[in-house]
Computed example of a mutant assay.
Amino acid sequence: MIKAGIIGGAGYTAGELVRLLHNHPEVSLEWVHSSSNAGRPLCEVHSGIAGDTDMLFADTHPLQGIDVLFLCSGHGASASFWQQNEMPRGLRVIDLAQDFRDESCGYVYGLPEINRPRIAEARKVANPGCFATAIQLALLPLAAAGCLEGRVHTTGITGSTGAGVKPSVTTHFSWRDNNLSVYKPFTHQHLAEIGATLRHLQPSWSEGISFIPVRGDFPRGIFCATTLRTALDTGELTRMYSDFYSESPFTHVCRTDVDLKQVVNTNKCLLSVTSRNGEALVISVIDNLLKGASGQAVENMNLMFGLPEDCGLRLKASAF
């Protein structure tokens, strides 16, 4: 059994990670650390696992006794953690924050659809951001074929869980319900990692992405609509995307419209591609807490330990 530990165990991504690891056939979850909740039962914070475990939040994090560590604290906390702690020989680390997504300090960027062999050999993996995952999966086949043309335009709608568990004005129910709003237009922090990946695949492309993030009035999921110039027709695009993702167990190209309910509670990304009058539309949908965070982290763990990529991740969508 793979022995796992979690740092920063009180947030939404940690809650999903606890659920996935607790039910993973090859994992023993040894401890979940939370400074603010030490001594409390996990199910008092993550009510979705009530009845599944009587584990308590820990106030220590013995790194010597585990095989893999998941870092789920806020952005900046992962770098601070390693300033205060030494990484034991043989420990593997998966960071869900943005601290090492530039592949600094020996981390490998954890997007399996392009880095599967490198992830399998890595000791340290930086999990991609949620919007970054949805947008990159919408564009990777074009970039790999050198077919990105001109500036890319994306509008992405995300659920309230994407803002984290700590309450704020824009996550309050009475504000968010029946409401939409734009935030961080053209400046979202995930643009850096998206651009780095796409330019690595197609160095000649330098136009960039105009990204408009939107706060949705639903708890979880990301729906991205991406448009760009192309000379390819719908059939050619569909074949290109299907071939590119033929070995990916979670990314699928659909010939019909896609929607959020098809992916919420799963580790899937569903894509649909359409071309008309020299312009392509790519729709990508994911669950921001699973394929956009904890599910992809477990997918990376599976690769790092030589397990089937979909082990412990065969989840049914909440389609009804």
Results as ranks from 00 to 15, higher is better:
residue 106 G to V: 10
residue 168 S to P: 02
residue 123 R to A: 05
residue 150 G to Y: 10
residue 111 L to N: 05
residue 112 P to H: 12
residue 109 Y to I: 07
residue 169 V to G: 01
residue 164 G to Q: 10
residue 114 I to T: 11
residue 147 C to N: 09
residue 122 A to P: 06
residue 100 F to W: 15
residue 155 T to R: 12
residue 130 C to V: 02
residue 114 I to N: 03
residue 141 P to W: 14
residue 139 L to Q: 02
residue 136 Q to Y: 02
residue 155 T to K: 10
residue 121 E to W: 05
residue 108 V to S: 01
residue 140 L to T: 03
residue 120 A to W: 11
residue 166 K to L: 14
residue 141 P to D: 09
residue 125 V to I: 13
residue 106 G to I: 11
residue 107 Y to P: 00
residue 134 A to M: 03
residue 119 I to T: 07
residue 121 E to H: 10
residue 151 R to C: 02
residue 134 A to D: 04
residue 116 R to M: 08
residue 166 K to P: 00
residue 104 S to C: 09
residue 142 L to T: 02
residue 169 V to Y: 14
residue 167 P to V: 15
residue 132 A to I: 12
residue 132 A to T: 07
residue 154 T to F: 12
residue 119 I to M: 08
residue 105 C to A: 14
residue 170 T to C: 04
residue 139 L to K: 02
residue 112 P to S: 12
residue 131 F to C: 03
residue 157 I to C: 09
residue 171 T to K: 07
residue 168 S to G: 14
residue 129 G to C: 12
residue 108 V to K: 01
residue 139 L to T: 01
residue 156 G to S: 13
residue 120 A to G: 02
residue 157 I to G: 01
residue 117 P to K: 08
residue 135 I to N: 05
residue 113 E to F: 14
residue 139 L to G: 00
residue 147 C to Q: 15
residue 170 T to I: 15
residue 123 R to C: 04
residue 132 A to M: 13
residue 160 S to P: 01
residue 156 G to A: 15
residue 150 G to Q: 07
residue 168 S to Q: 13
residue 138 A to F: 08
residue 116 R to G: 02
residue 163 A to I: 07
residue 103 E to C: 09
residue 151 R to I: 06
residue 172 H to G: 00
residue 127 N to Y: 12
residue 138 A to V: 06
residue 152 V to M: 06
residue 145 A to K: 09
residue 128 P to K: 06
residue 101 R to Y: 15
residue 139 L to V: 03
residue 126 A to Y: 08
residue 166 K to C: 04
residue 136 Q to P: 00
residue 137 L to A: 04
residue 161 T to A: 04
residue 152 V to I: 15
residue 109 Y to M: 07
residue 149 E to P: 01
residue 114 I to W: 14
residue 169 V to L: 10
residue 138 A to M: 05
residue 131 F to L: 08
residue 165 V to E: 05
residue 171 T to F: 13
residue 144 A to K: 14
residue 118 R to A: 11
residue 159 G to T: 07
residue 154 T to M: 07
residue 101 R to T: 12
residue 100 F to D: 01
residue 157 I to W: 12
residue 116 R to K: 14
residue 126 A to I: 08
residue 124 K to G: 00
residue 153 H to D: 03
residue 161 T to Q: 08
residue 148 L to T: 02
residue 138 A to R: 05
residue 137 L to Y: 13
residue 155 T to N: 01
residue 109 Y to H: 11
residue 145 A to S: 13
residue 110 G to K: 10
residue 108 V to G: 00
residue 150 G to R: 08
residue 165 V to P: 00
residue 109 Y to P: 01
residue 121 E to N: 05
residue 147 C to R: 15
residue 132 A to K: 10
residue 145 A to E: 14
residue 132 A to H: 14
residue 102 D to Y: 04
residue 125 V to D: 04
residue 154 T to A: 12
residue 146 G to A: 04
residue 156 G to Q: 07
residue 155 T to Y: 03
residue 147 C to G: 07
residue 164 G to D: 11
residue 134 A to S: 10
residue 155 T to Q: 08
residue 170 T to V: 13
residue 118 R to V: 04
residue 172 H to T: 08
residue 123 R to M: 09
residue 151 R to V: 07
residue 107 Y to D: 00
residue 171 T to A: 09
residue 145 A to C: 03
residue 167 P to D: 12
residue 109 Y to C: 03
residue 137 L to M: 13
residue 152 V to R: 04
residue 104 S to T: 14
residue 170 T to W: 15
residue 153 H to P: 00
residue 165 V to T: 03
residue 147 C to P: 00
residue 149 E to D: 10
residue 160 S to F: 12
residue 166 K to F: 15
residue 166 K to S: 07
residue 172 H to R: 07
residue 135 I to V: 15
residue 166 K to H: 11
residue 164 G to I: 13
